[in-house]
Design a protein around this nucleic acid. Structure first.
Lengths: 228, 228
DNA sequence: CGAGGAGTTGATTCCAATCAATTTCGGTGG
DNA sequence: CCACCGAAATTGATTGGAATCAACTCCTCG
């Protein structure tokens, strides 16, 4: 199951790592026979979930539109991350949309297989709960960030998230993922213009370095200081 | 288990409703032998959880302080609601504080009994997951509200939450709970002054009526229209 | 090589936080 | 029972930060 390991260096948490061969077989994992290209949608808010997905290559953004039409990214999923399990669990429509930020490949798990495994394997169930609890903790942190932090702090937070989640290339210090400025703004919860201005400020202050649309993080500590 | 029923008219979701007598016994439920008075703290962010709680009387706010010291209420718990289960699940420190908004009584469940029941009863486990999934959905909605909505919309949202969660007195149309203006602001994610001004606007516009610190919701539909 | 999307920059507006002052309310002790 | 005190509520004035609007450049890709 090497391909399921998350590439997030901070949390070596893998939902499937302790499953037996039979249990994995019972999940009826199926490689999705198509590659999602940058910008393609996996599912849309309001749709009905039929299965859940495990990312094994690429990056997926989970996003939602506010009433004014502005987009907010609530979560980024990369290799090893599960998508759409929330809606499976409470048997409701998707409460957010998912689309590929870069070329993405997925496995599919039929919902009934997932539910069955939860019922039969309590350790697995506990792991899913931990995952939910962790997501919840993050979401609640995000609520406070959105409510209280300045644009500068929110953008710093977004950049730190990106470097935590996707790491930086060890040679160039560049973020291993390329998101547009709009997408960075959508994570931070600020307008594209504000994101751009703040990124440009960080550049002037030598905290980061801009190389085209790529962002090199020169000094993570300085960024950390920004968010207190 | 009548006392565990949630008083939220919209979600008759009771975690314990389908447990057998033995299963309930296995939870080693214990009535907390003291009454928490208004303002008293149940636990503090950063503390280590030893048990989880079920509210059976009163209201508890789950809140967190931002770096600037401003408070944000992330959740309100009333009769039938579970508190502190998240931290039990991922075995970490409390990520928020909890305190009584009004006189509150609780049952206590030892964490090991809770975990054991989850492991042994997959239906119960699924219910806990649904609860988590629901909390997560709410939290993510809140993220977008905080990021994108105006003060007016956020306060309207907070008032609707209060009327959904605690209902209104059928005779007086007053909210069945009394929170301070500061607390309403802390739910909405705005300053106390902004909350007061907006509440006063709603009053002038006949959407609500103010009777001392009590708020009478004259027209929920109008409030709903505010949040689109 | 053209077109459109992404990025950038500047000017303006305005919403809501902040600061400050005053009033009202609720509880408590004399 | 009432006076008093501190907390909560209210109102006004000011400020500042970030959204909005607008114009322009620069890629990149077909």
């Amino acid at each position: 199951m090497q391909e399921f390991r998350t590439n997030n260096p901070k949390t070596h948490f893998c939902l499937f790592s302790e499953l037996s061969r039979e249990q994995i077989a019972s999940l009826r994992l199926q490689e999705v026979d198509r590659v999602y290209k940058k910008g393609e949608s996996l599912f849309e808010e309001g749709g009905y979930p039929k299965a859940l997905y495990v990312v094994y290559k690429g990056i997926v953004k989970i996003h939602k539109y506010g009433t004014n039409g502005k987009e907010q990214i609530t979560r980024l999923a990369s290799a090893g991350d599960l998508i759409g399990y929330r809606s499976i669990l409470n048997e409701e429509q998707y409460s957010a949309s998912a689309s590929a930020v870069e070329e993405t490949c997925l496995f599919k798990i039929p919902s009934d297989a997932f539910i069955t495994l939860i019922k039969e394997n309590s350790d697995f169930a506990l792991k899913v709960m931990k995952m939910l609890a962790e997501d919840l903790r993050n979401a609640e942190k995000q609520v406070i960030d959105m409510a209280q932090k300045s644009v500068r702090e929110k953008v710093a937070e977004a950049l730190i998230l990106l470097s935590d989640k996707f790491g930086v290339n060890e040679h160039t210090a560049a973020l291993n993922s390329i998101l547009t400025r709009k997408e960075i703004g959508d994570i931070a919860g600020v307008t594209t213009e504000s994101a751009i201005r703040t990124i440009s400020d960080f550049n002037k202050e030598q905290i980061i370095e801009i190389e085209g649309k790529r962002i090199l993080i020169k000094d993570v500590t300085k960024l950390q200081r920004e968010i207190l």
